[in-house]
Design a protein around this nucleic acid. Structure first.
Lengths: 410, 410
DNA sequence: CAACTTAGTTTACTAAGTCAACAAAGTGGG
DNA sequence: CCCACTTTGTTGACTTAGTAAACTAAGTTG
């Protein structure tokens, strides 16, 4: 780290931040830099300058020049020589995890989690601030500032993202009933406080992006979130399909049960997917906002709860059949708190799904969301998206034995 | 037309045909050429070099150079001066309809339609060849050759597309039960015969592309095709979403009717969407392969047929509710032979759709496919896609009073 | 150890942008 | 009516970032 952080960072932002007014020449250079970066980040085998040249079709001279710039920016480092393949040994390239950090803040109704994530996706520091009453916007800024100061990382922040429950658009929390926030320009507030570009993301979208982390270009993935309600998201490559009015995925109140609908849904109608397949519908009072996804003790304890889950699985698979026939996705992910329902529920959904195999459709793997990926990857990816697109998958597992520091920070 | 066709054409193909081995510099030039071309084709107001410079953010020097090249290629022409806006009068630019032509062949079970379409989307010549027995591959080549000779247009063909019923992939008719063709490399056969790049497209996909003709970037459209079966397609901007295994849109045999399913579907199961909402299911024997979409005489004549249509509308709207909640599309298009079902059917679908408005979703316009756009636009767009992307919308209406020449050509 | 391979850099060249000056052809006020 | 001002489009000098090919560096293998 010969070159100081802030210097390097502003160069980087100038090169990558798509402020619209990019001229054509720098745009293509940006494209090539990102292609090289994506290769280094995603390829399982060691990547060298020669590999970049071969895989991108660029000349080795260009590959060298791209790598030089990526190293200059603190995005990539050389990590010793690779084995020879019959000639001079190549120099391994890896993502630089020492220079830049991503700030992630997850705002919940009773707590704020703040984390620092490196460019490989490892959580290098985290902290939870418990909250007494309502969530104030300033509490988010304070929580972030505290952790940065504690880690001495103020100058290493490349980008930040705040995850909130509710409707978000363009850095603004448009409508969050859970937090009581309406029209809060959260991104610009935090941006001013920490001096790094900040994005704001919805919790369901963040989760879908986490699941789509290693997506190849053009891969379609259908993510269904089960929580208090039911939502869905479609990811195309590494990006979300937002829909014409930004309301794609609102499948919770679509009617799927036409006979034997249990009760009226909170929306006023009956037979909604949500009233059958949400966590609340299946677990009743056992499911709360602070539900622990790893606790499976409450499940399937009574005949009634088993029956509820079977009913929910049936309703869910109905919706899944249509959606997956339409999109022919790579896979279907059932995320949110659903993994806590255990293998039996997933099995039931699969069985129901395959009970009516639609002619002409391909079999689709259905799996649970990967809780072990950690909750910070989706927002971290969102933070980087405006700068580096989805070049960095951030799929590295969290470092073993790193327990989050729980407690107040002032 | 000072510069002869073939010369110009090969230059054009060299510049645009994405043979993969494009180097980075020519790639960006290609991009800019297409941006300029798309502006000229799509903008309602007259486009000039100055407009291109302003809208693309490129300098006026670059805009001039781009336009010069487009004119050289026979894609654009100057059409007189525009009004002054306080200074020198600009030169209007329009798509050149005199130089290049697109060949479209539509293969049906008993006839082949061939058409020549100009770059504005106008059908400038067409012919139908009625067939006695089975459709031979050579008949397609002959039909195209005949029309080209009759019009003296052999050297003006920029690209071609053949539309066939059945499964197609990469220029090959993989499986067409209707034609009895399996693994026919149709594209390369015709390409050799006429010396222009040729693509092969499925009829449902072609239709969806026609409907998405004027799509803005990133616009999501859901097109449902009603014919002998039921299929769907999702278009994102001007391109089709194919799915992980190329089987997106196969919603015909998804179960949507759970109570009171009429009969077993031809797939062996019951309650399929197709068994309720296909044209065959709703019209019975009145619907055949050679159904005339403009003939509405058979419809709703009996109480039973009215009831069948209502049942079909209900089943269809169930599927539509989920799909549109998931994708939040700009609009839903009911295409295929459906427009022949008249306004009453569409009204029923809309009513059923809106009967259970899912909370959180946006209202979606549902409309019939636009038969008046003509059947050649989708394939024509597919023909150009490998060369010009979707720069040219081809949305011009067919020239009034141009009746297709019906009869044998030898 | 010589011959071959592979990695990566250096140098000359090229494509295609930007910038700024300028010519061409209009409009409009005194 | 003429001169100042606008707008369009072109021309030429300069810049960015690519390619191609020669070259250096550092290995492996017969």
């Amino acid at each position: 780290m010969s070159n100081a952080g802030p210097q390097r960072k502003s160069d980087l932002l100038r090169r990558f931040a798509s402020t619209g007014g990019l001229d054509a020449q720098t745009a293509i250079r940006r494209e090539n830099l990102l292609r090289a970066l994506a290769l280094i980040a995603r390829e399982p085998a060691p990547v060298t300058r020669a590999v970049i040249a071969r895989r991108t079709g660029l000349t080795s001279a260009t590959a060298s020049s791209l790598v030089a710039e990526l190293i200059e920016f603190g995005l990539v480092t050389e990590t010793g020589p690779a084995e020879s393949t019959g000639g001079k040994r190549a120099t391994r390239l890896e993502i630089d995890t020492e220079t830049h950090l991503i700030v992630v803040a997850v705002v919940r109704t009773r707590a704020i989690d703040v984390a620092l994530v490196d460019l490989a996706g490892r959580t290098v520091a985290s902290n939870r601030v418990e909250l007494a009453g309502e969530v104030e916007v300033s509490a988010v800024v304070d929580a972030v500032r505290s952790l940065l100061r504690a880690e001495g990382a103020e100058s290493r922040v490349l980008a930040a993202c705040v995850q909130v429950p509710g409707v978000t658009a363009d850095g603004v929390v448009v409508d969050s009933v859970q937090l009581g926030w309406f029209g809060v320009p959260l991104a610009s507030l935090l941006e001013e406080a920490i001096g790094a570009p900040t994005s704001v993301v919805n919790d369901v979208d963040a989760e879908a992006l986490t699941e789509a982390a290693d997506a190849a270009d053009g891969a379609i993935r259908l993510v269904v979130h089960l929580g208090e309600g039911v939502g869905a998201a479609v990811t195309n490559g590494g990006t979300l399909m937002a829909g014409a009015t930004g309301r794609a995925g609102e499948i919770g109140h679509v009617r799927v049960v036409f006979e034997g609908a249990r009760a009226t849904c909170r929306c006023g109608l009956s037979g909604c997917l949500e009233s059958a397949a949400s966590m609340s519908a299946m677990l009743g009072d056992a499911y709360t906002d602070e539900f622990d996804e790893h606790d499976t003790s409450l499940l399937a304890s009574t005949a009634e709860s088993r029956e509820r889950m079977a009913f929910g699985a049936r309703a869910l698979s109905r919706a899944l059949r249509i959606m997956s026939a339409l999109l022919d996705p790579q896979e279907v992910v059932i995320a949110g708190a659903a993994p806590a329902l255990g293998p039996h529920f997933l099995g039931t959904v699969r069985d129901e799904f395959e009970m009516y195999p639609a002619k002409g459709t391909a079999p689709v793997p259905i799996r649970y969301g990967r809780l072990e990926l950690g909750r910070y990857l989706g927002p971290a990816r969102s933070a980087l998206a405006p700068i580096l697109g989805d070049a960095l998958p951030l799929t590295e597992r969290p470092a073993a034995g790193l327990a989050p520091v729980i407690g107040e920070v002032h």
